[in-house]
């Protein structure tokens, strides 16, 4: 039951992030939304590694770590691209 609760929260985070990603125009908000979606997915992974009395599964934990590094890399590149656009603005 706990994993349904935590994992379900992850799905809600994913959906909220998706909504925000689609409706907000500014890049910063889109990036935050994308990271919320990512957190949602990681939330589910952490939730499913605990199944009742069974031994916790280390594989989803490792996937989360990998996923975080990927999300950080993508966010950093997006911010750098945006910074470059700002710098080229006539008044920037």
């Amino acid at each position: 039951m706990t994993e349904l609760l935590f994992g379900g929260a992850g799905i809600l985070l994913f959906a909220m992030g998706l909504w925000s990603f689609l409706v907000h125009e500014p890049l910063l908000r889109k990036l935050i939304a994308f990271n919320v979606m990512g957190s949602g997915v990681f939330h589910i992974l952490v939730a499913i590694s605990e199944r009742g009395a069974l031994r916790p599964d280390p594989v989803p934990h490792a996937l989360v770590l990998t996923g975080i590094v990927v999300a950080v890399s993508a966010t950093a590149l997006a911010l750098a691209l945006d910074r470059r656009l700002d710098d080229e603005d006539p008044d920037g």
């Binding site: 889109k30 590149l77 997006a78 691209l81 656009l85």
Partner: peptide
């Protein structure tokens, strides 16, 4: 190019 790449990334 930078703007198009950013959109592609998203």
């Amino acid at each position: 190019a930078v703007a198009a790449s950013l959109r592609y990334l998203l």
